[in-house]
Amino acid sequence: MNVLVVDDNESVADSLAFLLDCYGHHAAVAYDGETALRLLHAGAFEIAFLDENLPDIKGSAVARSLRETPICSAAFLVSMTGDAVSQADIVRLFDVYLQKPFSCEALMHVIEDARCSSDAATRQAA
């Protein structure tokens, strides 16, 4: 899967992207919301992991922008944060919420959920 990892902590973003690459996915990184939006609008990412506390734009604002853009609205969005966030925002904007720190098992479960969601959307479009 083509994955975008968005986190202002470069070590976290790079490590997660490396792990995803090791599992056979194609991961790109962004360290801020503006770059994430630019990449998501330009690229064909099937899943995006968005940190909520980005320095310029909150992860939920990035998700809201994507959900409002028809070409990007089908992306599988994962909220990642170590802070408590509004449950209403998570349900409305994100497909999954991962509380940091999360396990490799939880990460792989999310990837499988995204894959199943993508497969269902492809079948529905056919």
Rank of each mutant, 00 (worst) to 15 (best):
D51L: 01
A114Y: 01
F18G: 11
E46Y: 05
V29Q: 01
V96T: 14
V85R: 11
A114E: 04
G43H: 15
R92S: 14
A106L: 14
G82E: 07
Y97K: 13
F76N: 08
A61C: 09
D83H: 12
E46T: 02
T81G: 07
F18Y: 14
Y97D: 11
H109W: 12
E52V: 08
F18P: 03
L16W: 04
S60D: 05
F94T: 11
A13E: 07
G24Q: 03
D14M: 03
E34Q: 13
A61M: 14
E52M: 06
G43L: 13
R64T: 07
T81F: 05
L66Y: 10
D95I: 03
F45T: 03
L39P: 06
T35R: 08
V96E: 15
I57Q: 14
D56G: 09
M80T: 03
V110M: 02
A28T: 15
A27Y: 11
A75D: 04
A75T: 15
C72G: 01
H26W: 04
F76E: 09
A27G: 10
I111V: 15
S73V: 01
V62L: 01
E46C: 04
A88G: 04
V96S: 08
D56V: 08
D32C: 08
D21P: 05
D95C: 11
L98Y: 01
P55G: 02
Y97W: 13
M80F: 00
G59Q: 00
C72Q: 08
L107W: 12
I57G: 08
D21N: 15
F45H: 08
M108C: 10
G24N: 04
M108E: 13
A63W: 06
P101Q: 10
A44H: 14
L37C: 12
D14A: 11
D113E: 13
D113H: 12
Y31D: 03
D95L: 02
A75N: 07
V96C: 12
R38D: 11
L19W: 06
T35Y: 01
S60Q: 05
P55L: 00
P101N: 09
S79D: 01
S86H: 10
A36F: 08
H26F: 05
E105S: 06
Y31G: 04
P55D: 02
V29T: 14
D83Y: 09
L16S: 01
L50G: 00
V29P: 00
D83V: 03
R38A: 09
A27S: 14
N53S: 12
A75P: 02
D21T: 09
E112G: 01
L19R: 06
C22I: 02
H41Y: 13
I111D: 05
E68M: 12
L93K: 08
I90E: 09
L20M: 11
V12N: 03
K100C: 09
L39Y: 09
C104P: 05
